[in-house]
Design a binder for these strands. Structure first.
Lengths: 170, 170
DNA sequence: ATCCTACATTCCAGTCTTGACATGTCGTCA
DNA sequence: TGACGACATGTCAAGACTGGAATGTAGGAT
């Protein structure tokens, strides 16, 4: 499971509450590993049970601040270096392209141009996000920036591809 | 759920058994919407119950051949034209990049160059697949080819990005 | 004859994910 | 003071997905 490690990774940067982590998932991490509130809170409890994180402070509104333990950091490093990436990417956007042949050429082209627009929009949104975030200077932030650059290039590539694909339909 | 529609889409091309569909998922569709044997057989039963597909022939070894019904085709068209792409893509490959900062620069660079190699390999594998498939001339095959072209470009983009990213690490 | 591989399906336990519902606090603005 | 939005957590049912076990047939090679 990668959600587990996503949480460990975020807590490696600095201690945070479930709510804080949720906000991060809603913005930057949404592009890479979306997770809902229920999932995050459930997983945090489980991680605390395992001993990879621990509650280090309790704030005003029931707020619990979690901190990565040494075991947690070791597990994170292990995951990064020892385990092979597993998950194949699923894309329902691309899945549709496979079956566009059951539509009329006009409908198919409309889908692809819509996809080009969507990609352009995704690119713009991400650009705004990257520009708005107050990046620190630590290693984790540097890598976060590198990772988001991927999203920018990805969206650009997809837009170009969608435009090309639209021309391929007879 | 997209697996449902993936199966409808494949059956739109020609009738097939669960086993046939499984083989297709293992090759071309693995890049877009991976599915296991248990999932495919379970979903086929459910689709038959719904009436979107039906068993039209029974072969030698318990083989059941499913055919798309008119209702199934209508549902497929509806999915393609009326519903918005939903699923955010998850990538545990990219998730790791976010957290590479907890490793030493050397370890981080090693991960990225490994990723570049993996992408190159993915590109080569897909190239071989595309070249080996005996494409028909119908619309569905044309669109399948367009969709796989996406995979080629995607892998190329990722390789270039990973090589660039490795240079960004101090 | 026997073995092996490819063909072919069914079922299951456990985990991950989604989308909701439920509950409560704190600060601020009208 | 009352309403509201942001903060903050917990729980649940249903559906999707993974990985494996179990079962059996047909055809070809040794």
């Amino acid at each position: 499971m990668s959600l587990r490690h996503a949480l460990l990774g975020l807590l490696a940067e600095h201690p945070a509450s479930g709510y804080d982590l949720l906000k991060t998932f809603e913005t930057s991490l949404a592009n890479v590993w979306p997770a809902t509130q229920s999932q995050i809170y459930t997983e945090l409890s489980r991680l605390a049970d395992t001993g990879w994180i621990s509650v280090t402070a309790e704030g005003p509104r029931g707020r619990k601040e979690y901190t990565l333990t040494d075991e947690g950091l070791a597990e994170l490093r292990h995951w990064l270096t020892e385990t092979k990436p597993q998950r194949n990417t699923r894309s329902d956007i691309l899945l549709r392209v496979f079956f566009l042949g059951v539509l009329t050429p006009d409908q198919a082209r409309a889908y692809l141009t819509g996809l080009a627009d969507l990609s352009q929009q995704g690119h713009d949104d991400l650009r705004r996000l990257v520009d708005s975030v107050d990046w620190g200077d630590d290693d984790l932030s540097v890598h976060g920036r590198i990772a988001l650059e991927y999203g920018l290039r990805f969206n650009a590539m997809r837009r170009e591809w969608a435009e090309w694909a639209a021309t391929q339909i007879r």
